[in-house]
Design a binder for these strands. Sequence first.
DNA 1: TTCCGGTATCTACCATACAAGATTGCGGAA
DNA 2: TTCCGCAATCTTGTATGGTAGATACCGGAA
Lengths: 225, 225
Amino acid sequence: MAVTAPEANEETMAMRVVAALRDEIVTMALKPGDVISESDIAGRYGVSRQPVREAFIRLAQQGLLLIRPKRATVVKKISPDGVRQSRFIRESIEVEIIRRVAGQPGPDAAGVLDGLIADQEAASAANDSRRFHILDELFHRTLARLAGVEYAWQLIDDHKMQLDRVRYLTLGVSSSQRAIAEHKEIAAAVGRADPASAEAAMRAHLARAEVLLNQTISDFPDYFE
Amino acid sequence: MAVTAPEANEETMAMRVVAALRDEIVTMALKPGDVISESDIAGRYGVSRQPVREAFIRLAQQGLLLIRPKRATVVKKISPDGVRQSRFIRESIEVEIIRRVAGQPGPDAAGVLDGLIADQEAASAANDSRRFHILDELFHRTLARLAGVEYAWQLIDDHKMQLDRVRYLTLGVSSSQRAIAEHKEIAAAVGRADPASAEAAMRAHLARAEVLLNQTISDFPDYFE
DNA sequence: TTCCGGTATCTACCATACAAGATTGCGGAA
DNA sequence: TTCCGCAATCTTGTATGGTAGATACCGGAA
């Protein structure tokens, strides 16, 4: 259960190291294949080896690090098959979510989604790609909340970290217009209480990640297994 | 990203402690709400506090323990809503899997499934409930393998730990005949290459867990949040 | 009896030291 | 030059001591 469970608070040193390292990894400051060591990171953050070691354990369980006992610890390379199956998991869950939402839409469901899309259009117009990315996540997360399974989104989020690394490599706006159009189509199907159309639109929306992945693999082969 | 990723090997003491504690928890030897401590477990297994501490971290990330800093560590109580959402996740993925398998069944798919069901009937006849449970898992795992997403099953498996605790409380054979009949229905739909029927049969099969959960909550309220 | 405060004792957290396996590189022999 | 073996030096794993915070208990005052 809960992979990224309750480590949101950064009370302890170990938690802080986890947050810092995870950020470095998903932003590609630490690249797949990079070798790191407990002493190295400990010195870098001015703490003992102990909290760093615990951070390594957490990140290894999240699939970002690979601890090779008595040898070294490396930033895990991205597994194409793992990403593919993560996408399968995400599509399975999000399709079920959108069916629920479109099947029994709450009174304000369509309104909330339209509001988010408007924000995305604003972010896109301002060329604020970071905000756009956050709003994109929020759109999907909101769908999970509307379906009453927000916890399921946390699961997707954990698995999305791998693909986020890929996304960071291709930080071009990557046709945000198209994503917005697809979001509109999904929201419209929800407004019409049309589960079948909503499912089709969601599948088409998620299918784009496949193209992104394949292109990135050929662009950065060293970062993949 | 594998939550229960590569800790199958029990090379280190920490790994052994993880395996031992997890077994104690899912078999209800350690009950939800039980308070444990690093020193306690360390003394019990004859190791230092350090490996135990790391085991706690791993089990906490798997949702089996709750570490309360500077206070204590307790065996996490079962969250009914968490179990419900885990079931949602499982159903989403397994439905997608069965659609794939029934939509494009491999040449020997139906034969493999029939073989497993035959084994289950033998186990049921021998009243070997443990073996029956293992074969039940294998049936679902095999479907994932046939769909080419065996990794997705690992995810379900991680989330299933919570429900396994519940299941252990109700260790009656719990109508294995009925489960076998449902498996047969699923396998038959795969044999006919009939995705719609297969999906319906799978949903009905998984829906039984909901009844089991509600009954167990009323029988053992102390073990739930 | 009830309530409040101080203290003993518990907890997880962190730092440090040591142990043991794995790697690297250097030097000598063929 | 090439190859083999040993040793220095990495790495993670484990043990232990000390620290800060939270809890529980116990005694005294109202």
